[in-house]
Every structure is written in structure tokens, then in C-alpha cells.
């Protein structure tokens, strides 16, 4: 076979597979979003009513707000902790490998399982966390209070994803050359100043990638809120994907669910476009 045929023959199976299972479903979704479709009742064209309904639906805005507040706080904490851990471990040589290996474990933990693990950890009457807190006479209603339920979801997310930020930042630290530090130590002895004026600016590109990836990933948050509290108490931890799931497979309102999915897709695309230039540069 000729070179030209070969290169397409090798590439096409993957492209066709992914195209077939993403583009057609998406087209179908777009079409469905203009219909009122309930399983078993047939479809009727309703124009943009599903979208109007979504935008006037209090739970829509509520779930968006929940998603954003959980995502922003969680990602903020993860980046901060990841940075601190990476800074802490940048110098250490002994035992570094063991630590790195152990701390990556949460990343691979099945998220649903983590949610159920969370139920036992945050168990209010005799869970381990409240038992420790009771030494200081504090009782936190982790799972029954709307605010603390959000905190619980955030803490579990932090447990899963801080290792990710840590690993990537550590890789970023290793790309900064020793000479820069040596030169800096000529001028100052303050670790904080060196961190502020040298490490941090040199780490910014890596940080951009981490933020972009975490933000995009965060809109997929479904497993932990679902398994921890099913979006409750009330709708306080009902994140956006959970709302879509419920509309689709609990209420079987496929038209509205498609509209909601497309709105989510639009939001994610906005984030991707914002970071697109950076990403493109990276893959050159």
C-alpha cells in the first residue's frame, strides 16, 4: 500500500468510532431539545420552549450555583494544597518515591465508592470526624445541613484531586533549573521571597493547564454528590449533571434533558475556547 493510503487506514478506525458515537448522538440531542418527548408518549415539536423552561426553572439556576460554588472552592483548595505539598516535597529526596506513590492512590479510587466511604466518615453520631471534633466539643451536622453537605462534597473532591495538582506541580517544579535558585540564594535568604518571585511565576503555565483541566473535569462532577447524598438535603448538593440525569432518567423528560445537556455543553465549550490558545501552543 502507498504511504497515503496507509496513514488514513491507520487513523480512520479511531476517528470513525469516536465520530459515530459522539456526533450523531449530539445531532440527535439538538433535534430532541426542540421537542417535548416523554418516553412512551411520543414527541411533539415545541420550538424553544424547553430552553425557556430551563432558564425560568429555579432548580436550573440553583444547580448551576451549586456546581459553581462547589467547583470553585474545591479547585481553589486543591491548587493551594497541591502547591504547598509540591513545595514541601521539592527538596526531599529520601522517601519521596514512597510518598508520591501513596498519595496518588485517591486519584484512582472509584468516585462512587468514595461517596459511600464519605457516608461512613461523615456519619454524624459516631463517625470518626465528629468523634475527633467532639474532643473540642464541636458537633458538625455534615450530612443533614445544606451548607455542611456542600462542605462534605468539597472535602471528598479535595481528597480525590489534590494528589493530581500535587503531581503536576511537582513535575512543574522539576522543570525549573537549579541555577536559577542558586542565583537567587545569592541575593536573599528568604524562602518565601524566592517562592513568590521565582517559583510562582515560572510555575504559571503549568498552573494554567491545571486550572483548565480541573475546571473542565469539575463539570463532570456527578458520582460523589450522587452517592453521598443524592443531591440532598433538599437540593443543596444537586450539581448540574445530577439535574440532567434526574430530568432524563427519573422524570423521563428527554426533551428538557437534552436542552439542559446542550446548555452544559455550551458552558464547557466557553471554558475550552478561553484556554484553547494555551492548549494549542502546548501540542505544537
Amino acid at each position: 500500500m502507498k504511504k497515503n493510503q496507509i496513514k488514513f487506514a491507520f487513523l480512520l478506525p479511531a476517528v470513525v468510532w469516536v465520530l459515530a458515537f459522539t456526533i450523531f448522538p449530539l445531532i440527535y440531542s439538538v433535534r430532541l431539545s426542540f421537542f417535548s418527548y416523554r418516553l412512551g408518549r411520543g414527541e411533539t415539536f415545541v420550538g424553544g420552549r424547553n430552553f425557556v423552561q430551563a432558564f425560568t426553572y429555579p432548580r436550573f439556576w440553583g444547580s448551576l450555583q451549586t456546581t459553581f460554588s462547589i467547583v470553585l472552592v474545591a479547585v481553589g483548595i486543591e491548587i493551594l494544597l497541591g502547591l504547598l505539598f509540591a513545595w514541601h516535597f521539592n527538596r526531599e529526596v529520601q522517601g519521596d518515591k514512597v510518598f508520591r506513590t501513596l498519595i496518588t492512590l485517591p486519584l484512582f479510587a472509584t468516585p462512587v465508592a468514595v461517596g459511600y466511604l464519605g457516608i461512613t466518615l461523615f456519619y454524624e453520631t459516631s463517625g470518626p470526624i465528629n468523634m475527633i471534633l467532639s474532643l473540642f466539643n464541636i458537633h458538625v451536622p455534615w450530612l443533614s445541613h445544606p451548607f455542611w453537605a456542600k462542605v462534605s462534597v468539597i472535602l471528598l473532591d479535595v481528597w480525590i484531586w489534590t494528589p493530581f495538582c500535587f503531581l503536576v506541580f511537582l513535575a512543574g517544579f522539576h522543570t525549573i533549573s537549579e541555577e536559577i535558585y542558586e542565583a537567587a540564594y545569592m541575593d536573599t535568604n528568604s524562602e518565601l521571597q524566592i517562592f513568590r518571585h521565582i517559583t510562582l511565576p515560572l510555575l504559571l503555565p503549568v498552573m494554567g493547564i491545571v486550572i483548565a483541566l480541573r475546571l473542565v473535569e469539575a463539570f463532570k462532577v456527578f458520582d460523589v454528590p450522587y452517592s453521598l447524598l443524592l443531591g440532598g438535603p433538599g437540593t443543596s448538593t444537586e450539581v448540574y449533571p445530577l439535574l440532567v440525569y434526574r430530568t432524563a432518567l427519573k422524570n423521563f423528560d428527554f426533551g428538557s434533558a437534552s436542552a439542559l445537556s446542550l446548555i452544559l455543553l455550551a458552558i464547557v465549550m466557553c471554558i475550552v475556547i478561553i484556554f484553547f490558545r494555551q492548549l494549542r501552543k502546548v501540542y505544537e
Binding site: V18, P25, A257, V268
Partner: peptide, 20 residues
């Protein structure tokens, strides 16, 4: 980048069409 963009899409978007 096109492959990458597939990774970025939230899976929940696809549950209705895949179910159908």
C-alpha cells in the same frame, strides 16, 4: 486537539442520546 475536545465533553450530555 479534536481528540482532546472529545475528552473534555461532560459525559452527562450523552446519556439521553445513548439511552435512545
Amino acid at each position: 486537539i479534536w481528540f482532546l475536545s472529545q475528552r473534555v465533553m461532560p459525559p452527562v450530555v450523552f446519556i439521553v442520546p445513548f439511552f435512545m
